Computed example of a mutant assay.
Amino acid sequence: MVKIKKVYDKHYTVINNSVLNDVSLKCEDKGLFAYLWSQADEWDFYAKEVAKHSADSEDKIYKILRKLEEHGYLLRERQRNSKGQLKANKWYLSETPKQKWINIFKKRSVNKKPIRQNPKQVKPDLEKPNMEKTDLTSTNCNKYLSKQVKNLNKSLSKGERERDKGIVKMLLNYLDICAEQWHSKPITFSESEVQKLIKAVHGKDIRGLKEVAEKTIIYGEQYPQGYLLSCIKNLPKDVNKGESK
């Protein structure tokens, strides 16, 4: 028989045994809860920062957080100012599971499906701008736009364009994941906005796109499409790609 001898130090955390004895939680769930509980009140929490102090990825951290929410140990809420605009997030931890929090989590999970169907309403707006069919082909504006397209086609090969399209597609998919994790509505993009993202991402260091997506969900509340585009444009250039040329 093996006996455990506890060696106490000055730095310790007092925690209720309820969460530690909850058989519905995995050891990794209990470990993350204990880490969060050890932090001071009003501590600014970021999944990316927690991931730096563990061997788990950010995606893994987010999954565990959802597990804690599902079982009533964590509640995440978005605060609003006097104008009703969304502001920073407020997180609450409880040593014992709260049924009220569990009900809130279930309600949010159920309400997500109809929200994701709404972007279909954007399609009519994308189909309407067929104004190029009118007799305006000789205007200076259209000449300028056609020159832009020609220049873009000359500067990028077909392979490069397809690669950039794939990068933007993955970025938008990850953006939906971030929105779900932060209990925010998915962000919809028009075809012209997607094309701008594709053009902006070319030649950039795409390793920063994950962080860009998270920032867009948290901070880009008024005009997330423009915020995301600005963040991509501000990314550093891909130095390795430049050297290869």
Results as ranks from 00 to 15, higher is better:
residue 2 V to Y: 14
residue 4 I to S: 09
residue 6 K to C: 02
residue 8 Y to N: 06
residue 9 D to P: 05
residue 14 V to M: 01
residue 15 I to H: 08
residue 15 I to A: 05
residue 16 N to I: 08
residue 17 N to E: 13
residue 21 N to Y: 00
residue 23 V to H: 10
residue 25 L to M: 07
residue 26 K to W: 11
residue 28 E to N: 12
residue 28 E to C: 09
residue 34 A to H: 05
residue 38 S to N: 10
residue 39 Q to H: 11
residue 40 A to Q: 13
residue 40 A to T: 11
residue 40 A to H: 12
residue 43 W to I: 05
residue 51 A to E: 10
residue 52 K to M: 10
residue 52 K to W: 05
residue 53 H to S: 13
residue 55 A to L: 10
residue 56 D to L: 15
residue 57 S to T: 15
residue 64 I to E: 01
residue 66 R to M: 04
residue 68 L to G: 07
residue 68 L to Q: 04
residue 73 Y to D: 01
residue 74 L to C: 03
residue 75 L to Q: 04
residue 75 L to N: 08
residue 76 R to Y: 02
residue 77 E to C: 06
residue 79 Q to R: 14
residue 81 N to M: 06
residue 82 S to M: 02
residue 85 Q to H: 11
residue 87 K to V: 14
residue 89 N to C: 01
residue 90 K to P: 01
residue 92 Y to D: 04
residue 92 Y to L: 14
residue 96 T to R: 15
residue 97 P to G: 04
residue 97 P to K: 09
residue 98 K to D: 11
residue 99 Q to M: 06
residue 102 I to K: 14
residue 104 I to V: 15
residue 106 K to C: 02
residue 106 K to Q: 15
residue 106 K to I: 01
residue 107 K to V: 02
residue 111 N to T: 03
residue 113 K to Q: 08
residue 114 P to K: 00
residue 115 I to D: 00
residue 115 I to Y: 00
residue 116 R to T: 15
residue 118 N to W: 13
residue 127 E to N: 12
residue 127 E to G: 05
residue 130 N to V: 10
residue 132 E to F: 10
residue 134 T to W: 01
residue 136 L to H: 08
residue 137 T to C: 05
residue 142 N to W: 14
residue 143 K to S: 05
residue 144 Y to W: 07
residue 150 K to P: 02
residue 150 K to E: 15
residue 151 N to P: 00
residue 151 N to H: 00
residue 152 L to M: 13
residue 153 N to E: 11
residue 156 L to H: 01
residue 158 K to W: 03
residue 159 G to D: 01
residue 160 E to G: 02
residue 161 R to I: 12
residue 162 E to S: 13
residue 164 D to M: 00
residue 164 D to T: 01
residue 166 G to A: 02
residue 166 G to Y: 00
residue 168 V to G: 03
residue 173 N to R: 09
residue 173 N to M: 07
residue 177 I to N: 07
residue 179 A to R: 03
residue 184 S to P: 02
residue 188 T to K: 12
residue 188 T to H: 13
residue 188 T to P: 05
residue 190 S to E: 07
residue 192 S to E: 14
residue 195 Q to M: 14
residue 196 K to D: 15
residue 201 V to L: 05
residue 203 G to H: 04
residue 206 I to F: 04
residue 206 I to C: 07
residue 207 R to G: 14
residue 209 L to K: 06
residue 210 K to Q: 02
residue 213 A to K: 06
residue 220 G to K: 08
residue 223 Y to P: 00
residue 227 Y to H: 11
residue 228 L to S: 07
residue 228 L to C: 12
residue 231 C to A: 14
residue 235 L to C: 07
residue 236 P to C: 07
residue 240 N to T: 04
residue 241 K to V: 03
residue 242 G to F: 06
